[in-house]
């Protein structure tokens, strides 16, 4: 499953753009025409996993692997998503996210930067070689997966914008389009998340365009999201349309909804329970068995060597 090819082809050619665009366009028109049938199929319980994702080629392999845990089957990773814009149940995004138009897509970089700008997704894809990194993915709901993500460190994009010294935090804003999304009442849309500047610049923080060697499925947050592997999954904003550099800790969606349950940092931490469940263990969803594989949760999701120093001196029980 993992593509282990290293190549010297310039980054601009890494994703064959024509193929990709043609694929997406044909898919869109097909989906538009077959919308009713697609909806009927979804209601009939058929997995809404039509091959909507285009293959990514010339991925750069990396040392970021999870050697002691098997990779989650892609069907599971693409059918079990928390993407509340498309509905509150974890099967809703896979059923409803096809409505989202992911091309053309533009991302606006604004706030405390020297070079505020708006970039197309294609420009962003082409900045750097796309790496494949297998990360542990830990949801705050005490389940986890092991997923190969494709992207490059977010720091590359941040450097392009040249943040001012006054920029202390990065805020991400996700798409909120009532024409394409359910946007259930009860949550203040758009979804927003944030990182401290050093967290955003950490080499682990991945600007992500694909998984399993293919472009992201819509329900996974296509076309551009971040993956912050040492934090609970909700910190990794999906379908990002705006990145804003700010001087104060930005408001974040779940933190505003329930500050006692979801802290700004939300680092994976087995010693700090969620008020409603223990975070000491997790259900590892990487098998096809009804018996769950329950494994101990690791501090910083097992990425302590790379990230613990950023929190030196902080009381992680208080700043959870």
């Amino acid at each position: 499953m993992l593509l282990r090819t290293r190549s010297d082809i310039p980054s601009s050619e890494i994703t064959p753009k024509e193929t990709f665009e043609a694929y997406k366009c044909s898919r869109r028109s097909v989906m538009a025409g077959l919308g009713a049938i697609g909806a009927a199929a979804a209601m009939a319980g058929m997995p809404e996993l039509a091959r909507a994702e285009a293959k990514l080629t010339n991925l750069v392999t990396t040392n970021y692997t999870v050697s002691d845990r098997a990779t989650t089957p892609p069907e599971k990773a693409k059918s079990y998503n928390n993407f509340y814009e498309f509905g509150e149940s974890k099967s809703d995004p896979a059923a409803n996210a096809w409505k989202m138009k992911t091309a053309p897509w533009s991302l606006k970089i604004e706030g405390l930067v020297k070079k505020p700008q708006t970039l197309s997704s294609d420009q962003i894809f082409g900045f750097k070689p796309i790496e494949q990194r297998v990360y542990r993915f830990r949801c705050v709901e005490a389940w986890s997966m092991v997923i190969p993500w494709d992207g490059y460190p977010l720091s590359n994009l941040i450097n392009v914008a040249e943040p001012l010294p006054s920029a202390k935090f990065v805020q991400f804003l996700s798409l909120a389009d009532p024409k394409e999304m359910e946007l259930p009442a009860g949550i203040d849309w758009p979804y927003t998340e944030g990182l401290r500047m050093d967290e955003a610049m950490n080499p682990l923080t991945l600007l992500t365009f694909g998984s399993y060697g293919e472009t992201l499925a819509n329900q996974q947050g296509a076309p551009i999201r971040v993956i912050v592997p040492w934090k609970y999954g909700f910190k990794s904003a999906k379908s990002i349309v705006k990145i804003r550099f700010v001087d104060k800790m930005p408001p974040t969606t779940w933190n505003e909804l329930a500050p006692n349950e979801y802290g700004f940092y939300s680092n994976v931490n087995p010693n700090v329970d969620h008020p409603r469940w223990s975070q000491a263990h997790e259900r590892l969803l990487n098998t096809n068995s009804i018996f769950p594989k329950i494994v101990p949760t690791l501090m910083f999701n097992g990425y302590g060597d790379q990230v613990a120093s950023m929190y030196a001196g902080m009381d992680l029980k208080k700043d959870f």
């Binding site: 069907e75 599971k76 990773a77 059918s79 079990y80 974890k90 389940w143 259900r283 969803l285 096809n288 068995s289 009804i290 769950p292």
Partner: peptide
């Protein structure tokens, strides 16, 4: 068993 999270 093919459910993403059978227990849930």
């Amino acid at each position: 068993a093919m459910q993403a999270d059978p227990v849930n």
